[in-house]
């Protein structure tokens, strides 16, 4: 197989499984999971970064070579997301930002309008911006047009582990949007991730399913392998599936009969 890597913001990404760092039982476990998945990209909530002298700084546990994308978890408006991004960059956490603007604590669904506003501002300020959004073609187009590095539609609500419930909408986005499409949130099983990759997603981001699994390290490996399998299948061209055997041509067979 020829080399197949994703390039974003000048960074070569071999592992198309992005892993989130929340909800783990310890920072050590989180680190072991990133290593087991061979993750090239991870996301960290700035609100969980404690740089105090007494603190166990989560950033110290990210393996070297794993690119950190700070996320704006906790932001309820575009302004808050923008301020978190600026603070992260000023604190030396880099300029990769996953925008998460959520003003709905019941379902944790993102606010696409505020997300778009924050993306426009941060792209202009030189950030590499990954907006997390509810799948919507019109918003995805505008995110891509204003310079988002990728567009990250949700597969199902955060933490729900329900799988790719938004499949039809994500499929349309893959077809229509030039920026990479990365499914983020809701994937519960490795087969869900595989499904996304078979469809042509550029990558997937998984957190809860791995973090709360009984064996996070093995589960991360399983996800990693599923992502590779799905990607390979996509590149090979999926075999067309048919519902039943096609033995005859009931509609056009008469053409042959007449010969």
């Amino acid at each position: 197989m020829k080399e197949d890597s994703l390039e974003i913001g000048g960074v070569k990404i071999n592992c198309r499984l992005f892993v989130g760092t929340g909800k783990f039982s310890s920072n050590t476990m989180m680190r072991d999971v990133l290593l087991a998945a061979k993750a090239d990209v991870t996301t960290v909530a700035l609100r969980r970064v404690d740089s105090g002298a007494k603190a166990d700084n989560i950033l110290d546990y990210i393996p070297s070579g794993c690119k950190v994308m700070i996320n704006t978890s906790g932001a309820r408006t575009a302004d808050e997301a923008v301020r978190i991004a600026r603070l992260a960059r000023a604190a030396g956490a880099g300029n990769w930002i996953k925008i998460e603007v959520i003003a709905d604590n019941r379902y944790l669904l993102p606010d696409n309008l505020e997300t778009l506003k924050a993306t426009e501002t941060l792209v202009q300020e030189g950030f590499v911006v990954f907006p997390y959004m509810s799948p919507d073609l019109a918003v995805a187009r505008r995110l891509a047009e204003c310079g988002a590095a990728a567009v990250m539609p949700l597969g199902a609500p955060i933490g729900s582990n329900r799988g790719l419930k938004t499949k039809e909408l994500v499929a349309i986005m893959i077809k229509e949007i030039r920026a990479p499409i990365i499914v983020d949130a809701g994937l519960g099983k490795p087969s869900d991730a595989c499904e996304c990759m078979e469809m042509g997603c550029a990558a997937v981001l998984v957190n809860t399913a791995i973090a709360v699994s009984r064996n996070p390290i093995d589960y991360a490996r399983a996800f990693s392998q599923a992502v590779q399998a799905g990607r390979l299948a996509y590149l090979s061209g999926l075999a067309e599936s048919v519902d039943e055997a096609r033995a005859s041509s009931p509609l056009t067979g008469f053409l042959r009969d007449g010969d």
Binding site: A55, A75, I84
Partner: peptide, 10 residues
């Protein structure tokens, strides 16, 4: 155990 869950001033 989580100590920090918000950033003052945001």
């Amino acid at each position: 155990p989580v100590f920090n869950d918000w950033i003052f001033g945001i």
